[in-house]
Amino acid sequence: MLETRNLDKSFGAVHVTRDVSFRLEKGERRVILGPNGAGKTTLFNLLAGELIPDSGAIMLAGEDVTSLPVASRARRGLSRSYQKNTLFDGLSVEENLGLAASIHTGFGTRLWGDSLSRPEVREIVEDVAAQVNLQPYLHARVSEVSYGVRRQLEVGVALATRPRVLLMDEPTSGVGPEMAGAFHALLAGLPRDLTILIIEHDMDLAFEVADSITVLNYGEVVFDGAPETARGSDLLKEIYLGSWEHA
């Protein structure tokens, strides 16, 4: 469903990703691990189209999307959430979801009629709200709900475009350990045919939810395999935990 081939990106003399290749099958849930500065967020920006790689290719459902702009990739079913919330603060939770859903359904550029009252949009909003447990907050403004709820909404907005591939950039970033469980439940509630790539700091959570794991270090893939293998890997402990303690 999503595949990268030998992705290279440098900023000046700094090589941020080097020869990154991996492959996600439909419905696969892969977690990307790596210390700070390993190039995880850069990789996401390359996948989403916010950065263009120096060399290499990105395939989405068999199509080469390497040089497509962000919006075109999104319309082809690639959606992402951000590490830092990028919500529409003055709007309600419902309107946030509706905005995303109306772009997906094409009502977001119509001049006549309110997009949010369209049945197609309403259906997506209710669906997603149920998936990420946002029903109680639908009418509250984003600025009024707790940080944890906002993190859920961040994922919800990404889901409201009905993606085939979902990229989640540290979905549990900034929330306490008690939220990690809630996030696990949230993931469990997502459709099994949705392909998911997650950047996650919490190793235990990563091993719990992942079908497969990719470990990045200094921009390079140093491990690619099943979580069970990763758990026992000395290499992983050394690289990841070593740097992790420093951070």
């Binding site: 989403a48 916010e50 702009p69 962000v70 919006a71 999104a74 319309r75 959606s79 992402r80 951000y82 990028t86 919500l87 529409f88 603060d89 003055g90 709007l91 309107e95 509706g98 905005l99 995303a100 109306s102 772009i103 997906h104 009502f107 977001g108 550029t109 119509r110 001049l111 006549w112 009629g113 309110d114 997009s115 949010l116 907005v157 990404a158 409201a160 475009t161």
Partner: peptide, 27 residues
């Protein structure tokens, strides 16, 4: 309208609207 809502979204965060699949310059 849908267009007006998208416009407000663009004012808040152009990057996010683009990532959701909106052709921002057209709006």
């Amino acid at each position: 309208s849908g267009l007006g809502r998208s416009l407000t979204g663009v004012m808040h965060s152009e990057q996010r609207m683009r990532a959701l699949g909106l052709t921002v310059w057209r709006v």
